[in-house]
Design a protein around this nucleic acid. Structure first.
Length: 269
DNA sequence: ATGCTAACCTGCGCGC
DNA sequence: TGCGCGCAGGTTAGCA
């Protein structure tokens, strides 16, 4: 479900309700997620949230004594709710805030996770991640340096979180279209100038998606229960067989690494 | 090191 | 209406 913009949108939506507020208690309705919900989460009590940040597609809730790491997987969402709203199917965790609001973790497919760690930067899911695509280090030179000698397809490379994080299937497809680069091209053979353009497009597409509240395909909602609007601006993702918005020819769909890739064979070389 | 596959799940749309 | 199939925003573990 959520790529970087959707996770960031979630953070923006819930942060005002959490910062310096206390989580009184947590009720776990189903602790069987990608990994079992950590025991420390069950025991969380009267804990003020000191900070809420995003690293890759992870949300990090920092407390005095440690941190809660949340990943939304493919179908997860976090949503603020009032007590009076009935629980939905797949509302696996309910965090009770001292303000009376609840933060509910909803995840039909249960590919997400809710874990506790004392030092989140050293957690094994976090410590080996690549750089943030919206940071200054992420640019054409970085992509050039990381990609030399590699034969892997450029799309797969973009989605490799050990290189750079946050780019999932939607935005990999979109960024390559915006850059006019074939998703099949061996990344090690893409020129420095094209990689520079690609890096700029990645930053731009992610930033714009955040500004639009993310992409809502099936059921993504931000922390306040409202959908995103970026899907209206998608050029290729989900548009296989439809006309290219640039040249009008039919968009083609292939599978790479068992993920669907949509691109314009005319515009992307 | 790099790279592929299976695995973790539920829900939905489509063809028959 | 119902059933089976394939596909869906992700990522790790395990094995070549």
């Amino acid at each position: 479900m959520p790529e970087l913009p959707e996770v960031e949108t979630t953070r923006n939506g819930i942060a005002p309700h959490l910062l310096d507020q206390s989580i009184d208690r947590v009720v776990v309705n189903c602790g069987k997620l990608r990994w079992p919900v950590s025991p420390e989460i069950y025991a969380l009590k009267d804990a003020p949230v000191k900070n809420l940040q995003r690293r890759a597609k992870y949300l990090i809730f920092e407390f005095e004594h440690g941190a809660m790491i949340v990943h939304l997987g493919m179908s997860g969402s976090l949503r603020l709710a009032q007590q009076s709203e009935p629980l939905k199917k797949h509302d696996h965790l309910v965090l009770y805030l001292s303000t009376g609001w609840q933060l509910r973790f909803h995840d039909p497919r249960r590919f997400g996770c809710v874990l506790w760690t004392e030092k989140w930067q050293q957690h094994k899911l976090i410590s080996n991640l690549g750089i943030e695509p919206l940071s200054d280090e992420f640019n054409g030179d970085f992509l050039f340096q990381k990609s030399r000698g590699r034969k892997t397809a450029i799309k797969q490379f973009l989605m490799d979180a050990s290189i750079q994080v946050g780019i999932g299937n939607i935005y990999a497809n979109e960024a390559l279209f915006l850059s006019g680069i074939s998703p099949k091209r061996a990344v090690g053979r893409v020129s420095r100038s094209r990689l520079k353009y690609l890096a700029e497009n990645i930053r731009q597409v992610l930033s714009r998606a955040i500004a639009q509240g993310g992409t809502t395909l099936r059921d993504f909602i931000n922390g306040n229960g409202t959908p995103g609007y970026f899907q209206q601006q998608l050029f290729v993702y989900g548009r296989a067989g439809l006309p290219c918005k640039n040249c009008g020819s039919s968009l083609k769909e292939i599978r790479q690494n068992n993920r669907s890739t949509v691109y314009c064979p005319q515009c992307q070389k």
